[in-house]
């Protein structure tokens, strides 16, 4: 049932994106979204789908807030007359284990103020993060673990 509602929503989005609100286009979008949802049907059967939706939205809101903040901080740092840099790479111990979650966390870290994920170790336990200000590594690690990582676990577990 939820699948039908979702594919209807996707069909409406399809009509909005393609920009021609005809019946043919709506039917085509419906068929297309049914196909797309059929491909990911294994993921869809996970329980608590809609409860998770709110948490994903909150993760998205946090992400945009951090993105705006990080771009602003980089801009301020760059135009300040004396740049006081302490760059370095630190190792961040991962709690999340699945590849998808690690990818998401690495992307989020890259778009947060002053940090950029460089590499993940072969055993998927450690993420190497380049920070533009390494003066207080423990605080940065704590921020990541209690902010993004906890939210990712809430949203996708």
């Amino acid at each position: 049932m939820i699948t039908y509602i979702l594919s209807l929503v996707f069909a409406v989005v399809w009509v909005a994106v393609t920009g021609s609100a005809t019946l043919h286009n709506l039917i085509f979008g419906f068929a297309l979204s049914t196909l797309a949802l059929w491909i990911v049907r294994g993921e869809m059967n996970a329980r608590g789908y809609w409860r998770r939706f709110g948490r994903i939205l909150s993760l998205l809101a946090l992400f945009f807030k951090e993105l705006a903040l990080s771009a602003w901080k980089v801009a301020v740092l760059v135009v300040s007359p004396r740049m006081d840099l302490k760059p370095g790479i630190f190792a961040f111990p991962l709690t999340v284990t699945r590849d998808f979650e690690i990818t998401l966390l690495a992307n989020l870290i890259t778009l947060t103020p002053g940090t950029l994920s460089v590499d993940v170790s072969a055993d998927r336990r450690t993420l190497f993060v380049h920070a533009i200000d390494c003066s207080d590594v423990e605080a940065t690690k704590r921020d990541i673990a209690e902010g993004f990582e906890r939210k990712i676990i809430e949203a996708f577990r």
Partner: peptide
């Protein structure tokens, strides 16, 4: 850069 304070990945 030479001013970098740490590189834990190198040891790894």
């Amino acid at each position: 850069h030479a001013e970098s304070v740490r590189d834990e990945m190198k040891d790894y």
